[in-house]
Design a protein around this nucleic acid. Structure first.
Lengths: 349, 349
DNA sequence: GTTAGCACTCCTTTGCGTCGAGTGCTAACA
DNA sequence: TGTTAGCACTCGACGCAAAGGAGTGCTAAC
């Protein structure tokens, strides 16, 4: 059987109506709703075909039809090719003014959740390939050194290390120069045994310090890696959608959002594709997370200049307003790009 | 009427049973459950008295009784005087190994939520009275200075500022010495106009830099203040308790926990009392938050050495296991004290 | 003071009949 | 051949009454 124009129109009408109401939609509704002047009976025949082809489903005899995953998928594919729209009320100002990556991310998640009325998640940046920009030791008291490291993307981290030996101001200066000149521009991955042993040699009597410092640098960046930060917002939005808010489902969903570990699946998975800001849509069973099989998830890759990049995602019911969500995401991505290309003065970690 | 021993025994039995089951408890149950050899009829009489006195409530005729807020309050007061117990599985190790305050707090919240099966919240420390320990400017590139400030309690913050003029290594050194010697030991509040203008004078041609730096220092600490960090965990635990998990209530509760702003009320309020680690119990209507009027909230003040202190709280149904919660909190507080008195080497911000 | 007994209340469950939305099918129509 | 009207049928939702049961309050007896 072929999916002719009329079937497409009807299918779209069904899905659109269902997105709005959340109720199964019947033939009579469509008959009145669409421009095609057709009786409900005709629609019924077409719907019967559409069901056979797998685009729609009948929850039970004598109920209207609801879109199947395949139906949604068809709908989304259609929309994907359409225009970016929906100016969210995002004031880029907001973004400019806050100056810590972490806060920006939280704000972004909130923004998205509020604008869409779905749940939003955003992953913190992954730094493994970023280069060391600056490293500095300062003496806080005789046996305590403050190690400050700055990585490309202005991730700044501090660590206080306790050392046995005392170090003079001059020696400290030398150490700093040495560390900077040797490590600058290397990524964490590149600071391998060769580099380390060379440094230790140069450091002479202070090889212990070098050891400690490098250990800390690695550890700090590493820890940032390991428990990848993920921020969520608007989890409670799912209560807006009856089909998700009954007991068990709501509980599991919110738990997933709260615990965050599982959300990683949504992130790593996505980093492969790069077309259209890497926007991806998972519908129902397509999502890698079992707990979200009644949801749809839309993810995109963001970049806040200089290698700070991660994934942002929206989680909602399968009948989410894909058009709006996709539009909003595209718009946001574009805004971020614009903001962080023009403005590089606000920096911190 | 007087609350004699027997009434107390019965009241306790009622509450205890209700804590476990969550169902109204009837006279027959108590008659069998307690040691006192009394028929259900006798119990009924006593229960009737207890109801008249306001300790228990009948949801409707011909249902069992459930404790009233007053009843819970009585029960809690009894328990408050009893022993600390319940060794939670807390491995203090865990606490020692993580080295960022923020992470510790998150872990603590998780720990409490997991141990109690209620929701947990913990507020980040408030630093307004803490003293500046160390301040350092370093040059990242000709027009960018990295400002690192360390406040008592080892809150370390960084900020990159862009300056117009170029500064030589030597001048930078001097600035650092000057800043440290003048500001060290002062709290943010104490860095007033007098201090600032004096510094600007000393700085001479670099007064602009001083201005910027001080501005940043203030802003950084300030921002820490303003949106007081609050971490929550185990919000989904409330789904365990049917009386909280029906639609609207669950939604509102989780929203409150998610948005966090409102939780501040629980924190500021508490800081007044200091007895017993400042442990406070709010039952039902007693809590300052309207959304939690069907809950009980237990809060305590924690301290992680050197002025890092805040509030930790547990939110659960009114029929929460007060004994366990109080015991767990006391135990945890004690462990924290012990840990952070013996071990001051692991520091970072 | 305690207890057995009984009537009474009120929630909960179950079953049943009705209603209505929506379908599938058939037959008639253009 | 495609479209439509009509009709029987299905099935969930809703309302209502009856049955069941847990628990109480009261009274009278011990």
């Amino acid at each position: 059987m072929e999916l002719d124009d009329r079937k497409v129109t009807i299918l779209k009408a069904i899905i659109k109506t269902y997105l709005e109401t959340g109720e199964p939609v019947g033939s009579r509704t469509i008959s009145k709703y669409t421009d095609l002047q057709l009786s409900s009976a005709t629609i019924r025949n077409e719907m019967s075909d559409l069901e056979e082809m797998g685009y729609i489903i009948q929850p039970h005899t004598s109920a209207g039809r609801i879109p199947s995953d395949k139906g949604y998928r068809f709908y989304v594919n259609q929309i994907m090719q359409e225009k970016e729209q929906e100016v969210t009320e995002v004031k880029a100002l907001m973004i400019k003014r806050v100056d810590r990556v972490e806060l920006i991310l939280k704000k972004l998640a909130q923004l998205l959740a509020n604008n869409t009325n779905y749940a939003a998640m955003i992953s913190g940046p992954q730094y493994h390939h970023n280069k060391l920009k600056f490293i500095q030791l300062s003496q806080m008291d005789p046996h305590k050194l403050l190690v400050v490291t700055v990585v490309e993307g202005n991730l700044i981290r501090n660590k206080v290390v306790t050392v046995q030996e005392e170090i003079s101001q001059e020696e400290l200066l030398n150490l700093n120069i040495m560390l900077n000149s040797s490590l600058n521009g290397l990524t964490i991955e590149e600071i391998n045994l060769g580099v380390i042993s060379r440094l230790k040699e140069q450091a002479g009597i202070h090889s212990q310090v070098v050891d400690l410092v490098l250990g800390e640098v690695a550890a700090v960046i590493q820890s940032e890696e390991e428990d990848l930060q993920i921020y969520t917002s608007g989890a409670t939005n799912i209560f807006r959608y009856p089909e998700l808010s009954d007991g068990e489902k709501a509980s599991q969903l919110i738990r997933t959002l709260e615990q965050k570990e599982m959300l990683q699946e949504l992130i790593t998975e996505v980093n492969n594709t790069e077309e259209d800001n890497g926007i991806q849509v998972y519908i129902g069973e397509e999502t890698p997370l079992q707990t979200m099989k009644d949801c749809s998830v839309v993810t995109a890759n963001y970049e806040l200049g200089e290698g700070i990049r991660g994934t942002i995602g929206i989680i909602g019911p399968k009948r989410m307003d894909y058009e709006k969500v996709l539009g909003t995401l595209r718009h946001l991505m574009r805004q971020l790009d614009a903001t962080f290309k023009s403005d590089r003065n606000n920096e911190e970690g």
